[in-house]
């Protein structure tokens, strides 16, 4: 008997598709920011996707499957990493021995690094971590702006 997919699985597949295609859409569109392209993703964070290891692992696996079906998306995520002009954050790059590394730069130095034999696994890790970081930075920015706006309102009403 076929089981109907649960709402979590439908949502997860949707999030995986958005992340897989985000870099490709970013380069095709030229006028969209990554925040705009990843707009539905904060719902994943609201679902507790960061705290729930199983949920995060399922999303990572689904992104990896998608990347295996769409090799171009891998190239766009690697280009996205190479094109970053920031002084810290995640990266993916090819090592000299045909391995791939995924890591994080802090103050110009590598603070975290994992090496993979498989380009799809490395790219899935980068795409997921980068997408979540973008959403987290944006939501903390929105919260800070809301606090500033609230304090301005309170100042006016005093």
């Amino acid at each position: 008997m076929n089981k109907e997919p649960t709402i979590e699985i439908i949502l997860l597949e949707g999030f995986a598709k958005i992340i897989t295609e985000a870099a490709e859409k970013f380069y095709e569109g030229k006028d969209s920011s990554m925040i705009e392209l990843l707009e539905p993703l904060p719902s994943f964070l609201e679902l507790g996707g960061l705290e729930d290891d199983q949920l995060r692992y399922s999303l990572l696996t689904k992104i990896e499957e998608n990347l295996k079906e769409n090799g171009e998306a891998v190239n766009f995520w690697i280009l996205y990493s190479q094109d970053k002009r920031v002084n810290e954050g995640h990266y993916i790059c090819e090592e000299s021995d045909e391995k791939w590394s995924f890591g994080k730069i802090v103050n110009g130095k590598i603070s975290e690094k994992r090496t993979f034999d498989d380009i799809f696994e490395a790219t899935a890790n980068f795409a997921l971590s980068e997408s979540i970081s973008i959403c987290q930075r944006n939501s903390s920015k929105i919260e800070e702006e809301a606090v500033v706006s609230e304090s301005r309102y309170q100042t006016r009403t005093l």
């Binding site: 970013f26 380069y27 006028d31 002009r85 920031v86 810290e88």
Partner: peptide, 21 residues
Amino acid sequence: YFYLPSREWDSLSRNDRWKRN
């Protein structure tokens, strides 16, 4: 060397990133 804070970088389109650079 050119870099922007990550939050600002995230909010820019490809065209805007190149313009700033």
